[in-house]
Design a binder for these strands. Structure first.
Lengths: 227, 227
DNA sequence: ACCTGAACACCGTTCAAGT
DNA sequence: ACCTGAACACCGTTCAAGT
């Protein structure tokens, strides 16, 4: 299939080498034949972005505590993006409207609703988790791409070399700030979010009755509907 | 200055129209003259990415409670990215190693250290906040770019049109999921993170100090609509 | 020694010509 | 009616030729 070949090409040769002509050559067909399957390159890229997200869906699962499910969903999303570094940037600026994206959204929202979040809180949580994961992975990939070898020592050296009086906090924390990628940092950030979410779910910390269904009418005024 | 002209060009004509030739024309110089200031286009883009972040620094300030400072820093970062939508993607895949980035890092880390976070916790918090903000803005810009007009009604219609049995959670929360951009959602996510951070800072404390009330001043007035 | 701009090796996409 | 591939209007970058 065209999309698979395109992903393979982008991954093996790099995003810059992914051209309609090269893809045609890789498939052994006239490059212009691609235009009968996709209106233009843009549309093909949309298909690529959604295809990458297919891997995200499986790990969500439907059992376990909601924190576990949220964690594995976010980790799955990250893994999918990391597995296709040259597609990740594409994903970032595309609507996430494809089939695979929709299924992932369904699984994630179902988990949150089941946990007791109101539709509003669940949607907010979902967007927040998605935003964090996407941003984290992009920073991760960006730094890896720039720094040739191992990231940490390079960054630490860079931070340590700064003027101490001008950058007191940065030089003090050079070692800690040099960690900008990897599983541990990611899960730490994720924990932070989940901690916040848990507090929202059970504000009193006491064994409050599990709130199911929509929460009582929100006091705060709703967003002004556009027009 | 070349960088300012480049940003202006990218913003007024769109990222796709930003070429070395066009920039040369806009500056009234031979396009090839640019190569004496920047080794190649890549290096020029690095300069653009860092320049955009200059606007992030001012809002951080050095007074107020750490939550306020973190909030205004994140909001400032977001505002800077939103103000330059066609540069935002660039920022995403670049090392954030320029001067402006460094100063923003210093201000952010100083605030967190002062609040009582350990170097390790402060660095983790900083990376998490940065990742969330970047990812959120990219999703925001991506969706705005795709959907021509007002985002919310379009997305709501799309979610509502789905098969209820196949997408029960999504169709149930169509209204809430349709909100994928804007200040309110951003600050909600930010609150989640800050809540988690606060729990980390004061794990045992029963009562949160003072204000737990959400949303202080909304981000500076209204922001310029992208494009 | 400098700068210019022609030229090179590419793009995505169109469309006339050939079947 | 279809498909091909030449051609168009671009790129970023190089480098020889002019000053």
């Amino acid at each position: 299939m065209i999309v698979e070949a395109a992903i393979g090409l982008a991954e093996s040769q790099g995003a810059a080498a992914f051209t309609m002509r090269a893809l045609g050559a890789a498939l052994g067909v006239d490059p212009m034949a691609l235009y009968r399957h996709f209106k233009n390159k843009e549309e093909l890229l949309d298909a690529l972005a959604d295809a990458v997200l297919a891997d995200t869906i499986a790990p969500i699962g439907s059992d376990g505590d909601w924190r576990q499910r949220a964690r594995s969903a976010a980790a799955g999303y990250r893994t999918a993006l990391l597995a296709h570094p040259s597609i990740a940037t594409l994903v970032a600026r595309r609507p996430h409207g494809g089939d695979n994206t929709l299924h992932a959204t369904e699984a994630g929202m179902a988990a949150l609703l089941e946990a007791g979040f109101s539709p509003r809180e669940a949607a907010f949580a979902f967007r927040t988790l998605t935003g964090f994961t996407l941003g984290y992975v992009l920073l991760e990939l960006g730094i890896r791409e720039r720094v040739g070898g191992p990231v940490e020592p390079v960054l630490r050296a860079r931070y340590e070399a700064l003027d101490t009086s001008q950058f007191p906090a940065v030089t003090t924390c050079a070692t800690e700030l040099a960690v900008v990628e990897g599983d541990e940092l990611f899960h730490h950030g994720l924990d932070l979010l989940l901690l916040g979410l848990e507090r929202r779910l059970n504000p009193s910390r006491r064994k409050a009755p599990a709130r199911t269904g929509p929460s009582p009418p929100a006091v705060k005024g709703r967003r002004k509907p556009a027009r």
